[in-house]
Computed example of a mutant assay.
Amino acid sequence: MCNLYTNKSTVQEMASLFATPATYGFNAPADVYPQYPGIVVREDQGKRVLEQMTWGFPRHSINKRTGKPNKPTATNNARDDKLWTIWRQWFTNPAHRCLIPFTAFAEAEGEPGKMTRTWINVADQPVAAWAGLWRPTDEWGNAYTGVMVDATKELWDIHDRMPVILHPDAHETWLRADAEEAMAVVTQYSATKLTVERTDDPWFARKAQATERQTLI
């Protein structure tokens, strides 16, 4: 699953790339963790807009001791093989699909307790779009989640899942097409177009510690 990505592009760059108005006033961090604000592109009344939302649909588990709901955690990734079941009500409605602009996503590598961050960039898209779903929530306002597929074999040593990275000509399909056509763009991105950057940065950095216990359903 993906629990960290970065979006270092400016609002102006995103507006130009995704053909939206250059809306200002966002204060989202470049490094995006679950339950943190991120930027998405969605359609509103037939026009694309940039919007700040919370990453992750709220999920309430039950406290075994008290029997009451715990504080919500973020379901920040959606499995592609469950788009027709768990995620059906949002996936089949184009109005609830979105694009998640990003410049790289991170995975954890190494021994438990000593994991470091490995960043994966899209070589042919300095700012790429990850296929996402969004919905209004009572807990966090509008929130979004990213769709995941099985990783290509070249990435198995890093992780067995990867984001659905869309080619630019698939943006319109994901945002507007019916579910069957949209499903056709839910595919792996060629590993030949991805670059891997391994770092010595600890995975459990200050901001990541409180957000690592996320779910993929």
Rank of each mutant, 00 (worst) to 15 (best):
T75M: 14
P136I: 04
N70L: 15
N77K: 07
K8A: 14
A15T: 09
N7C: 14
D124I: 03
V164W: 03
Q89H: 15
T85V: 03
V11A: 11
T103C: 04
G38A: 13
G132E: 13
R59Y: 08
G110E: 11
N77S: 12
L99F: 02
E180A: 12
G25V: 12
M162V: 11
T192G: 15
V127K: 08
I165T: 04
T75Q: 14
P29E: 05
D44H: 14
T118H: 00
N3G: 12
Q45M: 09
Q188N: 15
W90N: 01
A184V: 06
A19T: 05
F91W: 03
I86S: 11
R59F: 09
T187N: 15
K8M: 08
G25C: 13
V147F: 05
G110C: 13
K64I: 15
M148W: 03
K47P: 03
S9C: 04
M115D: 01
T137V: 10
I120P: 00
Q125F: 09
R206P: 07
D201G: 00
G141P: 00
G146C: 08
M14V: 03
R65Y: 14
C98N: 02
Q52L: 05
A30N: 11
Q12Y: 07
N27C: 06
Q45A: 13
A143G: 05
W134Q: 04
Y33L: 03
Q188R: 15
A170M: 04
R161F: 11
I100L: 05
R59P: 02
A182K: 02
I62Q: 11
G25E: 09
T118S: 02
M148Y: 05
A208G: 14
E139P: 02
R135Y: 08
P58G: 08
Q188H: 15
N3H: 04
P112T: 10
A19K: 09
A205G: 10
A191I: 01
D200A: 11
G110L: 10
F105A: 02
D81R: 01
L166P: 01
M53T: 03
A210Y: 08
T137W: 07
A151I: 08
A95R: 11
D31L: 14
Y24P: 01
K64G: 10
A182C: 12
H167G: 03
D157T: 05
E212N: 05
I62C: 08
M1W: 02
N27R: 08
W84P: 01
V186S: 04
A30H: 10
K82Y: 06
V196S: 03
R88Y: 06
Q209I: 13
R198P: 13
I86D: 07
K8P: 01
P112D: 10
R79W: 04
K153W: 09
D169F: 11
P94I: 01
L4A: 10
T66G: 06
K71Y: 12
H171T: 06
A129K: 00
E51D: 09
R97G: 07
R59D: 08
E197K: 15
